[in-house]
Design a protein around this nucleic acid. Structure first.
Length: 432
RNA sequence: UCCGGGGUAGCUCAAUGGUAGAGCAUUCGGCUGUUAACCGAAGGGUUGUGGGUUCGAGUCCCACCCCCGGAGCCA
């Protein structure tokens, strides 16, 4: 086994005799010549069996191969323009390591319900492999970006008290003798505490929302990266966001061209993702939407349809900033220039993919923050430590949260974010 | 939670109220360069569950269950 070669390394081994370990995708036979496409995670390889050149037992083993059989194929590496990838294996032997009969996911089309019931097997498909590779690149780019910019990673708790943005959308679980604990909706509040210690910080992990959402943009469990920066105001915050998003998209274009091509993604719109992003205030956005014939009035939150209409005015992601205070979370800083609004922003991805970021400058005035907590009927006692941050050296600070699955869906051009995480958690799906 | 669509072979789908079918998958046979290969043959069904109308129900009616799409909420 140790002497095997990964498919991705084969172009450098032309002429060598090698053994490749992998899984059988499709097989084809023309009586005296047979083809097997193998997958090993690093790539795809076509192995060719010539009946005249291999022992009869090998030919019989080839003929018996079925979809997803785990095999070791020995042979010699050969450059061949007729092969996908330009490299082929002329096989001399095949050994079945793990048989597979009646693999449920056939080469023809399937419905989404069936595919998600077989998610553990569906992951092996070319499309899902491509999406997972892009997701990997997005996550690696996120970590590299913050590391290069001297951010510190701070891991925030997943089990929390009754704290977050709004009650009622929290998953609840028993917690020893202390009553209920809740799965974290955000690490932001903890991160604000850490920002006072380390300046530039971020957290990155799973986030849980018990919202009964059934849309292509929502999951009950999703991954979110949240930076928080001391001394950044809302403008600084948006500049960080556009640099960040552009870096992530650029990395995928640089390193994941093959995967985007496999997904038939038109990369034109992605090439245009460079700073600065256009910005429009909420108030101007409402005016624009009214021009477009929407019956929205000032004060209402922007729905998915309104966001979609707005983003079509631009050829790249757009910031919508300074929303009405009444429709936004309690921790957002009141806008001194227009107290009806807060210093926040959403970032809408291009091509109708909608909100990928929500961010804001945080309320740093103790009394205004306490008033907001009371206004929204939040459990004041749970926020004592959070209010402390405004008592001991309060400071201007801002941050945002970027949804990883939404970002991956946009970059990959896939319509539903549930394909952008290996095992999605949705309202009606907990298995596999 | 609300609105809309659906549930028939392992999968994707057909079938005027009148004998449940096709493609893929599986098994067998054929084919020396295939790209979701192709050609031929075979096996494979309690039509989501329960009740009702009818000479007769996959089809019509009622209830329930499950799935899909969208909305709200948000990342």
């Amino acid at each position: 086994m140790a002497a095997s070669v990964r498919i991705a390394d084969l172009p450098g081994r032309i002429g060598d005799a090698v053994t490749v370990l992998g899984w059988v995708g499709t097989t084809r036979s023309s009586g005296k010549i047979g083809f097997v496409v193998l997958r090993d995670g690093s790539g795809y390889l076509q192995a060719v069996f010539l009946k005249a050149d291999v022992p009869p037992a090998v030919w019989e083993r080839f003929k018996a191969l079925s979809q997803e059989t785990a095999v070791a194929v020995a042979g010699s590496v050969r450059a061949d323009p007729r092969a996908p990838g330009g490299v082929e294996l002329t096989a001399s032997d095949v050994t079945v390591l793990g048989p597979s009969t009646d693999f449920p996911i056939t080469p023809k089309e399937h419905g989404t319900a069936f595919l998600f019931e077989h998610r553990h097997l569906w992951l092996r498909s070319r499309r899902q492999v491509a999406i997972m590779r892009v997701r990997h690149e997005v996550i690696q780019a996120i970590r590299d970006f913050f590391h290069q910019q001297d951010f510190y990673l701070v891991d925030t708790p997943i089990l929390t008290g009754a704290i977050g943005e709004t009650a009622g959308t929290l998953f609840e679980t028993e917690y020893f003798d202390l009553g209920s604990a809740y799965l974290a909706q955000t690490g932001q509040l903890y991160l604000e505490a850490a920002a006072a210690a380390l300046g530039r910080v971020y957290c990155f992990g799973p986030t849980f929302r018990a919202e009964k959402s059934k849309t292509r943009r929502h999951l009950a469990e999703f991954w979110m990266v949240e930076p928080e920066v001391a001394w950044n105001d809302s403008d600084d915050n948006m500049r960080l966001q556009e640099d960040f998003v552009s870096y992530i998209v650029g990395r995928c274009l640089e390193r994941r061209r093959d995967e985007l091509q496999e997904l038939e993604r038109d990369t034109g719109p992605l090439e245009r993702v460079t700073p600065p992003f256009p910005r429009i205030s909420y108030t101007d956005a409402v005016t624009r939407l009214q021009q477009l014939g929407t019956d929205i009035s000032w004060g209402a939150d922007l729905g998915a349809e309104a966001e979609n209409q707005l983003s079509q005015d631009y050829d790249r992601p757009v910031f919508v900033y300074n929303y009405p205070r009444a429709v936004k979370a309690f921790y957002m800083k009141q806008n001194a220039a227009d107290p009806r609004t807060v210093l926040n922003n959403d970032c809408l991805a291009s091509e109708g993919y909608g909100e990928i970021i929500g961010g804001s400058q945080r309320e740093d005035d103790h009394d205004l923050l306490l008033a907001r907590i009371r206004e929204q009927g939040l459990p004041e006692e749970a926020y004592g430590w959070y209010l402390d941050l405004r008592k001991y050296g309060t400071f201007v600070h801002s941050g945002f949260g970027l949804g990883v699955e939404r970002t991956v869906a946009w970059i990959c051009g896939v319509p539903h974010i549930r394909e952008c995480i290996a095992f999605p958690r949705m309202m009606y799906r907990l298995y596999p």
